[in-house]
Design a protein around this nucleic acid. Structure first.
Lengths: 113, 113
DNA sequence: CATACGATTGAACGATTGTTCAATCGTAAT
DNA sequence: ATTACGATTGAACAATCGTTCAATCGTATG
């Protein structure tokens, strides 16, 4: 025989640790937006410099349109901020936490499998 | 007139900062797996205790099958580890970086919009 | 004003996603 | 051996995703 196991108490304990649906949903959205390679590349590129939409497109080999669509998402989730300069729209990171996420995510990704 | 802008140099600079496709892809996978509310809840629940598949299902109100599918993904990406005990499969977090990601992600998510 | 350039928009498309469902496997207990 | 329980699997489905394409907007420059 192995150690006894009570489903009841485990479930009750685990349930207590969960944040509200709203918080979980918001966290998931944040991670999800970083979960696409092109969007992630955009964010990484912006850790160095402010860039206009076209430069991002050229840097990543994406269409201007695709970049614009993604920037709108990134802005909506407060990862990216934008300012206008003439006919350019310059994008930059909006939040200092983002670079932390990138750093840790990269560490996990490049660890020995 | 505003400040002059050279696309050429901005693109060249930005390109240098980008990790390889392989690294970016792996990072994106890591974020993506945390980008689903149910999967994220599973991971959060496991920060506290080791849990069997059924307990996770009961805690989150998911079917056993759905949980099992997601655990396989989490295991493949090395977020979750599993050990057997009798007929139970106990899951726990596989990597200490994960909790850091959760903490920072939560901070960003709960910041004032 | 007309032109060019950078940016945005919305519809449409194929591709991917997460779940359900039913069937099956494995282990422990009777 | 049979039963019960926990876990896994694969097919199938609706839903969501990210891109392309064409059209349009805005602003600076000729």
């Amino acid at each position: 025989m192995t150690s006894p196991h009570s489903h009841r108490t485990s479930v009750a304990t685990a349930k207590r640790t969960l944040p509200s649906d709203q918080v979980v949903g918001s966290m998931a959205e944040t991670f999800k937006v970083l979960g696409d390679p092109n969007r992630l590349r955009i964010v990484i590129a912006l850790t160095q410099t402010e860039l206009c939409t076209l430069d991002i497109a050229r840097t990543l080999g994406m269409s201007e349109s695709a970049v614009s669509h993604q920037l709108r998402l990134l802005k909506a989730l407060r990862l990216v901020r934008q300012r206008k300069e003439g006919k350019l729209v310059l994008s930059s990171l909006d939040d200092e936490h983002i670079e932390d996420l990138l750093r840790i995510g990269r560490r996990h990704a490049t660890e020995a499998a």
